[in-house]
Design a protein around this nucleic acid. Structure first.
Lengths: 137, 137
DNA sequence: GTTGACACTAGACTATACTCCAAGGTTTAT
DNA sequence: ATAAACCTTGGAGTATAGTCTAGTGTCAAC
C-alpha cells in the first residue's frame, strides 16, 4: 500500500492531481489509515497508469471517466451497450492513430531532409514535409 | 481564396477558433480584401489541417506554434537545431504511438470479450482488458 | 518529546483553449 | 434599395485540468 506521495512520485504526477482525480471520480484509494491517509493498492496503480495513458493520447478526463465507469456499472449495462460504446471509442482511437502516423511521417521527412550540419535550414519546414499528405485530412 | 466562414465550414472549426489561432500566431490569412475580410489560400488550408491533426494527438497550441515556426525562422536556425528539435518531437510522437496502440488493444480486447448480446457485461472492464499491460507504463 | 517531512480539507488561483457578445461595416440575393 | 447573411474588432465569459495556499493533524527519527 502506497501513500499519496509515493504514488505521486511513481506515477510522475502531483499529489494534488491525484486528489483532483479522486474528486472527479476517476480514482479512489483502496484504503485509508486511521489518520485518514490515502492508501493505494496495485490495482490503483494500474488505474492511474491507464488514466495517464488515455490522457496522453487525447482523451478528456470525462471520456476516461466513462471508460472506467464500465467497470462500476457493468452489472446494469448490457453487453450490447458496452460493446457499442467501446466500438465508438475504437473508431476514435483509429482516427487518432492515423493522424499521429501522418505527423510522425512529416516529422521524419523533415528530419531526414535536414542535413544535420551547419547550413541554414532553408528547406526544412513542416508544411513542406507534409506535402500532399495535407490534402487528405 | 476562402473567406473565414468557408474555411471554418471546410475545416470543421468555428470562425472564432480561426481568429483565436491567428491571434496566437498559428495561422495568418494570405490576404485581406478591401473591406478587411480575411482571405485564405490553399496553403492556409494545409496549415489549419496540420494544426488540427497535431492538436488531436495531444500537442498543445504552443508546441504546434514551435513546429510551425520552423518555417518562419528557417533562415536563422541552423539545420542542426531544427534536426534536434524535430527529433525530440519524434520521440514524443513514438511514445504517444505506443500508448495509443496499448489503449486500442485494451479496447479491442474488451470489445471482443463482450458478447454483443443481452447478457450483463460482468466481465467487461477496461482494467481487466488491460491486464498485465498496465504494468508497463 | 520535539522537529521535519508528510498528510488532511476547503477554497482560491492559474493556464489553456476556446466561445460568446456588442456594436458596427460589407456583400449578396431579391 | 433593403434585408439577410456575412464580415470586422475588442473584450467578457466558460470549461477543463490542474496548482497553490492556509490552517491543521500525523508520523518517523533523533
Amino acid at each position: 500500500m502506497l501513500k499519496i506521495g509515493q504514488l505521486a512520485t511513481q506515477a510522475k504526477v502531483s499529489r494534488d492531481t491525484l486528489r483532483f482525480y479522486e474528486k472527479h471520480g476517476l480514482i479512489t484509494p483502496t484504503n485509508r489509515n486511521v489518520a485518514g491517509y490515502r492508501l493505494y493498492s496495485d490495482s490503483d496503480i494500474h488505474r492511474i497508469s491507464f488514466i495517464l495513458s488515455a490522457k496522453e493520447v487525447g482523451f478528456t478526463l470525462n471520456e476516461i471517466h466513462q471508460l472506467l465507469e464500465l467497470e462500476v456499472t457493468k452489472d446494469q449495462k448490457s453487453c450490447e451497450d458496452v460493446k457499442q460504446f467501446v466500438d465508438t471509442k475504437i473508431a476514435i482511437v483509429n482516427q487518432r492513430l492515423a493522424e499521429i502516423k501522418r505527423i510522425k511521417k512529416s516529422l521524419q521527412t523533415l528530419s531526414n531532409a535536414c542535413c544535420g550540419g551547419d547550413e541554414p535550414a532553408t528547406h526544412c519546414t513542416i508544411l513542406e514535409a507534409l506535402g500532399d499528405q495535407a490534402n487528405q485530412a
